[in-house]
Design a binder for these strands. Structure first.
Lengths: 226, 226
DNA sequence: ACCTGAACACCGTTCAAGT
DNA sequence: ACCTGAACACCGTTCAAGT
């Protein structure tokens, strides 16, 4: 994951076979920046600095900054390991959902926003979709309904992971002290249901929420399809 | 929605009562920029230009750019009209979901990304949450389960609207010509389920997807609670 | 084919000096 | 209390000139 720093700047075409610069190297360096300092720290200049290269050189391999960001998102998704189908709708969907969560969040937590928030180069990610669609079809869905089911699942997962990445609306706070303070605030409010739910609103076990929602959704799908 | 342009720059404290600058005016101007040119066009400088003011003056009323962006998101959410509860779980949840969709997407489409993607100043948005929580409690949920249900709903809505705002992964393309081209591509792929579903994957009726997912989710909730 | 110097038109933000 | 000039440390990107 570390990338060599060039000892000195040099002008003109690099000696044959020595060009360290490539789209792949650039994406790797960009991933390093994301993992180390977050997405906001990614700039053509910081990425070039990691590689020991002039920022403008990047434009020989990457269209622009937006394409670079898309490239990172694509790279992460392409590393998603799709588990083999094992027959049951519930098992298959759970496995895919967890695989997606692993790729988008566990491996590169600081890149989650990027993966979830950018329309990614599509063909990279077809295999996971295939497995999910196959599961729906096998459960008796028409192709049209299977796509609806897929999109519902995907929306839920996206929203949940975005919350987990602290990039979406929540009342919950991850810091325990602030969470209890938040609870006090919510208990002092005039809205009765909010007040009753205050302890649960103030904190959030992401793992548990993920499982709850997923279970609920799969129940509904099984019910509608079978 | 239009904001006066100051005829000339002027230094020092403004004549009493004439200060046009205020947090509210700044947020209004920022909303104009978002609506007119998109979120990416928002900068301290562009917002100041709309107001005919020096960019640095904004810092007297707004902590920094991030706070400004959060302010916009909060403003939009605060304008969400919460429908009165009318008893049924299905009706109430549908109404709230549609209200959220209206506020986050219909009113200011170019700001959707902002609303969906930023942890918003919380107390603004408590009323809608109250209505939803009340519905879950009335349907027999414990406070803990009610919060789980709420979060599942919210995640689904967030993910769906993000897709609709073209800020999340889809295979579908809104341009009809590109959509049919995409369909051809998907039909040429080696994955059988993807191929079977190609026509439906290539396009997306957002309204319909929203209703499908919402219906599915509410089915599951009714089933689990009742 | 690939790199860089010079250059352009932008950013957010601080702080001291003005009224 | 509120505004701005001067200033700083950043951005993304183009293009022509180099090898």
């Amino acid at each position: 994951m570390s990338h060599a720093i060039r000892p000195e700047t040099r002008r003109g075409r690099p000696p044959a076979g020595q060009s360290t610069l490539s789209r792949q190297a650039i994406l790797g360096a960009a991933m390093d920046v994301v993992d180390g300092k977050g997405v906001e720290a990614v700039s053509m200049r910081t990425v070039a600095r990691v590689l020991g290269v002039d920022p403008k050189s990047l434009y020989n391999h990457v269209e622009n900054k937006d394409a670079l960001l898309d490239g990172i998102a694509g790279l992460i998704l392409s590393r998603m390991v799709v588990p083999d189908s094992c027959g049951g709708l519930r098992e298959d969907l759970t496995a895919i959902a967890r695989a997606f969560r692993g790729a988008a969040l566990a491996e590169h937590p600081r890149a989650a926003r990027l993966v979830l928030t950018r329309p990614v180069e599509s063909l990279i990610t077809l295999e996971p979709l295939e497995v999910a669609l196959a599961a729906f079809l096998r459960a008796g869905a028409s192709p049209e309904v299977a796509v609806h089911c897929l999109r519902t699942m995907l929306a839920f997962i996206t929203g949940t992971l975005l919350r987990e990445a602290e990039a979406a609306f929540t009342l919950a706070l991850s810091d325990p002290d602030m969470a209890t303070e938040r609870q006090r605030t919510l208990e002092a409010v005039e809205l009765p249901s909010v007040r009753a739910a205050a302890p649960h609103l103030a904190k959030c076990d992401h793992e548990q929420e993920f499982d709850f929602g997923l279970g609920l959704l799969i129940d509904a799908l099984e019910c509608r399809l079978g």
